[in-house]
Structures are given as C-alpha cells and as structure tokens.
Write a protein that binds this DNA or RNA. Structure first.
Length: 777
DNA sequence: AGTACTTAAGTTTTT
DNA sequence: CTTAAGTACT
C-alpha cells in the first residue's frame, strides 16, 4: 500500500520570531536553516545532510543577500556541479526575487571558468575561440601521439595515459613538476610524461583545452595575473559553492584564489560552501574530502551550520541509510532524523538472474502505478550502465514507460561529432584534430595518404589545414582529389565569412547542404545511415532552437554549451516515465519511490573499487546516496546470477545489505532461497555478507512461506553432482514456489535456465543447476 | 581507396 | 556479448 497518509508540509510556518516571520525568505525555515540564510561573515560552511533542505537554504540565502541589498545580483557567483543544478537554482532564485535575478553567475565550475577564459585567455597565450576537447577527443589525440612516439611498446594505452595525465592536471602538476617528482627507474612513468608534454603542446597548437585544462588555466590566470584576479575579486561580493565535498585540488585552488587577497589588505568575496562528506562519490576523478574536512582550518573564522533534519524521507529509510553510513569510520558523527513518520518497510528481493530481478522491479512499479503513483515519481538506480539492458527488456515487455538518463549522449554519436567537428573547423581552424576528422566525411576521396600530404604541406608553409585545403593545387596531387580539397576549403571559407553577417543556424544549414553531409547518409542503402541522417536533422533543429533562444550567441557559444552539457542535464520530469540512471547521476535528486538494483558483491561495491584504498568507503557512500534519494518507498534488489562480459557469474549479496538492520527490511525473496550457502567452505566472513535469517524474519516473509532446507544446506561440493535433467513440459517441484511446468529451456549445462510457470501463476526463470527443484510426479 | 572480414578489447562512476 | 579498431582483400 502506498502511504498516502504522509503529508508533505515539512516547513510549517514559524511563529517563533514574529519579526522575521514576516520575511518570506526566512519564515518557513528551521532555526539552523535560518541561521545559514542570515549569517554574514567571511566564511560559512553549511554541513547539509541528505534531504536537509540544502538547495532551499542556498537559494534563500542568495535571494536574501539581494533583497537586503547586501549584494547586487551581478556580485554573486554560485557554483554547482551540474548544469541541471545550476538551472534549477537560477529558476528558484528567480521565483523568490522576480526579475531582479538577472546578472547572477550561477553555473558549474567548468562553465564559469570557460566564461572567464573566453575573455582573459589571451594573457596565457591562447586565442579566445579555443575549442574544448572532451574525453573522446583527447583520447584520439593521445592515441595518435603514443603511436607517433612509439611509446606503445611499453604497453601504454591511450586510456591509461589519459587517466594519469588527468590526475596530474587535477593536482595542478605540469610536466616539469611531474618530471621532478618522478621516481627514477619508472619507464612507464617516463613514457607517460613524454606523452604528457607532447599532448599539451598539441593542445596549445590546436588552440584547444581539455576538461581539466579549463580549471588549470583559470587557476594559472588568477594566480599569475594579480590585476585580473583583483578585477574578479572586486566584481563578486559572494562566492557560493555547492557540493563542496566533491571539489578537487584545482577547484580548491580556484576558490582560494578568488577569496584570498591578491594584494595585501584588499577586500575579497565572502565564501559560502555547502556539502556533505557522506555524499562524496567522486574521489575517482580527483575529488578530495580534505577540502571540506579542513575547510575551517583553511578559512579562519569560519562559521559552521549543521543541517540534520531531513525533510525528504521516512524514518525507516533514514534508519537504513544511517546504519549503512555509520559503518564508515573516520567520519563526523551525524544522525539524520525525520518528522515524517516511520513509513513503509523497505522491500527487498533477490532474483536468480538480472531478468528475474528486473521482473520484480517491473511488477512492483506496475503495482505502485496501479495504486496511484505516477510513473515519473519512480526511479531505478544501478551501479553501471551495462545493467540497463535487462531492465529495458523487461520494462518493454511489461509495458512500463521508462526513460534512460545518462549513458550514451546524443552528442557522443559519431555523426554528431562529425557535424560538431565541422563547426569547430569554422570557429577554430587551428584545431587540426577536428579538421582531420572531417576531411573525408562524406567520402570525397581523401584517404590517409592524401591526408598526410596535406598535413605536411600545411606544416611546411605555416598554414592551417583549411588554408592548406584552399591552396591544395600547390601539393601536386591528382586533379580529382585536388578539386575535392579545394572545394572543401572554399566551402569552409564561405561559411566562415557568412557567420559574421547571417544567423548561425542558417549558415550551418546551407554549409551542410553544400558539402552534402546529410544527403550522403540519406541516400545510403544502409538503414543505420538513415537513422544518422535523422540525428543530424535533429542536430540542426537543436541549433536552430538555440539560435532562436540566444539571438546574440555566436557559434562558439553553442559549441561551448554542447561541450559542457551532460546527459543528466536534460532530464525532463514532465514525461510520464520511470527514470533509470546510475547512482552517480542520482545525486541531488529525489523520488517518492526508489529502486536500488544490483546489490551484489563485485557490482556494489564494484570489483574495481574493492582493492583500492578507500574504495569500499566510497562505494558505501554511493549506496548511501542512493538510499537517501527515496521519499516514501525504497526497494532493494539483486541478481544472484548475472551475465558479465557475456559470461554468467554468480555473486554474493552486497556486503552493504548486512549493514541494514534486519527489522527494517521485508524480504520478498531472500538470497538464501536460491543461492548455495558458502557457509561450509568459506566460514564466518561470508556469513556476515549475507543478511542473516532470524526467527522474526521468517515470520514476516510474505512470498516464501517455507524456506526449503535444501537450499541452505547444500555445500559447494554438491554443485559438482550431476544436475537435474529437465525437458520442456516436465512437471517440477520447487522448494518455495510449489509445483510448476517447464515451458522453455535456454543455455547448456550448468548455465541452463528453465522458464517455469508455477501452478500459482508465477512465471520464473530458474538456473536448473542452482534452483531448489526436483522432478514432480 | 573502399569494403568486408577478423580480432581485440572493454564496462565504474562524469564535468 | 557488443562495439571499435585493425587487417586483408577487392
């Protein structure tokens, strides 16, 4: 039953302080929230537990600063981690203030830095129309550099180099710093360092920045040019940073540069940071928890406000979340509490397979929907994107409307990247990588040989590639290919010139038409090419949309927005669909009903993190983030068998499940009901990783009236015994589900899966080798 | 130069 | 298992 009894009026009007109660910006807040809004001082740290009204406090604080004339909107810089959060904040401040909100900078770290760099980067020797390389772009570049330098003999992959270089940049270490600190006798390190130098050179020559550079360059700009720094310190009176626990070294230095005087005694902006160390989930990309832990030491005179009351979830959900996060040592004790009542029990289910698990999720979603909950109020979370497949398959079959958030982005598709590369070529002709990408798209007979002749020709004569194209006659190639190159160069030139006078979407449309970009795909015999043509048309439509909404914007602005916009940002909640996303994407969101799936050892916590220092702790925080997204209903599920790399694997339940007190969970089907207990072979440690069965538990279980002694007593050795031979049509008996008929068989040997329709009506897919079934007479 | 085939690799999370 | 990249062939 959906607990529609819970009333959602968390912020009851206050009557304690008649004087401030009149101010709508503080009247609905609890004392701590109010303090966070009203405080004026150099540094404020708001420790905001999950669901404690953090965004509300931040937006009200900004609105209050403006309405009390403590700051003009243009004197406020608010930094968030995603564009979505930024948009939401801007909208909410706007609602509180009306039109007075114009001129605020509310953006992500990266957007704010790009905005600064577009104006100031000349000081660092680059051009204002620099392009931004995404992960894919820089990997292509690295791959080429590694190959050119024959650095791959060390077994160095582009991905590995990228990872190390990115980590160095996040710590603000340039090649020289690395060179000084590198351990002697580290050939791989030397090789990567060599590639790092070449990579930075190539980026500079292309007038391009990668994601990390955006922060690094801004820090260098502010630290190296006091007058620039002073200018921005004068511009802003207040700097506010959300999700401070996820900042890395570069971001920390950026904040420091903005809030410590460039010149002794000069006034600097006041700093407000909001964060929750329990929700730090980005250490893998350089986030450093010490930033928030040491905040009051870094910024003397810090005022600290603690928000511990949760307005989001029922007490049971919070109890579970508190219990989970309490297992992380080395954290400030924090206990979230709710006044929303206990709520419903947490439902849990262990399936045989990922499809089995997905079926449970789909069934429960259907039930919730029947009980009146909108699909859009339901979210399904998972650790890895690969887990979506089974969910999608079952959802389609069950008729559950869903929407994937994240995953492959529209702008990551090859044809869209081609289109973007063309636009980059117009804006930043120095960007060799982009021009080379599109030389032969659509096919115009420019192969690798011609390409390298062109590149050499350009280098010899000091030309950009587009310029070299226009002068292709000088290369001395065949007439056909020369003609192709010249006309491409001409098309680029024409479009570039037209950009200064005409609307950008019209220029781009005509340009694409001229070079036949979409036409080539449309007339292709391949159906996939037709889909690509449609994507490109969609791309043009988006560009038109952008040009209409931003009449003053240049092409470079569109490109910037595309580069810095994540998939999670275009999450529209008006569509009536269940949303599916990773646990990482889920941060900052909330839903009445939440499913956390894939609770298996090796998946959550993920195998990759298990050996890392602090890995398990971060995975636990990730789980904690997932749990605390739920308002009223929380479901936990796992699949005992899951196909990974196309291979069936058996997993133990996640160790995190054992962290949740048993009496909070209602198990619909326990792992023990279908999994072989490893008690005999592994001893006590594995016992704890499986939620224990206490007498009270078994009385509360709903769907498994009797746990067959069979399953829990089987030892690992007995797996080697010959398995049951079944064929379609056989009658079988299951320890928990009773009798049924085998309808389908798939797979061979130990991986054989039987689809069984039980006499009670349930349809289950069971691994024959593992399931507690016998032939019935 | 372009196509088709084979092989390899990858899947933790994202601005 | 799927997708991308590399190789061989036409």
């Amino acid at each position: 039953m959906v607990p529609r009894t819970i009333e959602w009026m968390p912020h009851s009007p206050s009557s304690e302080h008649p004087a401030v109660a009149a101010d709508p910006l503080v009247s609905g807040l609890n004392p701590q929230q109010r303090e966070a809004v009203l405080y004026r001082g150099p540094a404020l740290l708001i420790v905001a537990g999950a669901g404690s009204g953090k965004t509300r406090v931040l937006t009200h604080r900004i609105a209050h600063l403006i309405s009390t004339h403590d700051a003009w909107p243009s004197q406020i810089l608010a930094i968030t981690f995603t564009n979505k959060a930024a948009n939401e904040m801007r909208e909410r401040v706007g609602q509180l203030l009306g039109a007075a909100a114009e001129g605020m900078w509310i953006s992500t770290f990266h957007s704010a830095c790009v905005r600064i760099l577009r104006r100031e980067i000349a000081a660092l020797g680059l051009g204002a129309s620099f392009t931004i390389y995404d992960t894919h772009d820089s990997r292509v570049l690295l791959k080429r550099l590694i190959k050119e330098r024959h650095a791959d003999v060390e077994g160095l992959t582009a991905a590995a180099a990228q990872h190390r270089i990115s980590a160095w940049k996040n710590e603000l270490r340039d090649p020289d710093d690395v060179s000084r600190e590198l351990q002697p006798g580290d050939p791989t390190g030397e090789a990567v360092l060599d590639v790092y130098r070449a990579y930075d050179d190539a980026l500079r020559r292309a007038n391009a920045l990668d994601f990390d550079d955006i922060l690094v360059y801004t820090v260098h700009l502010l630290n190296g040019f006091p007058e620039v720094r002073h200018r921005y310190q004068q511009k802003w009176l207040h700097v506010l940073v959300d999700e401070y626990q996820d900042t890395n070294k570069a971001q920390y230095e950026l904040i420091r540069a903005l809030t410590t005087p460039a010149v002794e005694g000069q006034p600097v902006p006041a700093l407000t940071v909001v964060g929750d160390s329990d929700q730090s989930i980005y250490a893998f990309r350089g986030a450093d928890l010490r930033n928030i832990i040491d905040f009051d030491k870094d910024f003397p005179g810090t005022h600290v406000v603690l928000l511990e009351q949760n307005y989001r979830s029922t007490q049971r959900i919070l109890d579970a979340a508190n219990a989970v996060i309490a297992r992380n040592y080395d954290r400030a004790a924090k206990q979230l509490w709710s006044s929303l009542g206990d709520g419903e029990p947490i439902e849990a289910f262990a399936g045989y397979s990922a499809h089995d698990e997905a079926q449970f999720v789909a069934d429960e979603i259907t039930r919730l929907h029947r009980e009146g909950l909108d699909y859009r109020d339901i979210a399904v979370f998972y650790r890895t994107n690969a887990q979506t497949r089974a969910l999608e398959e079952i959802f389609v079959r069950a008729g559950v409307p869903y929407r994937l958030v994240g995953g492959t982005k529209f702008y990551d598709r090859a044809e869209i990247k081609d289109a973007l590369a063309y636009l980059v070529a117009l804006v930043n002709p120095a960007d060799e990588l982009s021009v080379r990408r599109v030389l032969n798209v659509p096919r115009r007979g420019i192969g690798p040989t011609t390409e390298s002749r062109l590149v050499h020709f350009a280098a010899e004569h000091g030309l950009t590639l587009p310029q070299a194209l226009s002068q292709a006659k000088g290369i001395g190639l065949g007439p056909k290919v020369t003609q192709a190159m010249t006309s491409l160069g001409q098309a680029l030139e024409d479009a570039q010139r037209a950009l200064s006078t005409e609307r950008l979407d019209e220029v781009v449309h005509r340009f694409f038409e001229h070079i036949g970009l979409i036409e080539a795909l449309r007339t292709s015999l391949d159906d996939q090419d037709h889909a690509r043509a449609e994507n490109l048309e969609e791309f043009e439509a988006q560009l038109t949309d952008y040009a209409e909404k931003n009449p003053d914007a240049q092409l470079i602005d569109f490109l910037t927005e595309v580069s810095l916009t994540a998939a999670a940002d275009d999450l529209e909640d008006e569509s009536g669909s269940v949303v599916l996303m990773t646990l990482h994407t889920a941060k900052g969101l909330e839903y009445p009903a939440v499913f956390v799936t894939g609770l298996e050892q090796g998946l959550l916590p993920h195998q990759m993190s298990i050996d890392e220092i602090g890995g398990i702790a971060e995975e636990r925080r990730l789980f904690y983030v997932g749990l605390t997204r739920a308002q009223r209903r929380l479901y936990l599920s796992l699949a005992v068998n899951r196909t990974v790399f196309g291979q069936a694997q058996t997993h133990e339940p996640s160790q995190f499940l054992a962290d949740i007190p048993d009496d909070l969970i209602n198990w619909r089907q326990r792992p023990e009901d279908l999994m072989v207990s490893s008690l005999g072979s592994r001893g006590d440690s594995s016992r704890r990783s499986t939620p224990s069965l206490s007498p009270e538990d078994s009385s509360r279980r709903t769907q498994t009236p009797k746990r067959g002694g069979w399953a829990s007593q089987v030892t690992a050795e007995s797996l080697a015994k010959p398995m049951l031979q079944v064929s379609v049509g056989d009658r079988i008996r299951h320890a928990s589900f009773g009798q049924g008929t085998v309808r389908e068989l798939a797979g061979e040997g130990r991986k054989q899966v039987a689809t069984i329709v039980f006499d009670g009506g349930a349809r289950k897919k069971l691994v024959v080798a593992l399931a507690p079934i016998t032939l019935a007479e």
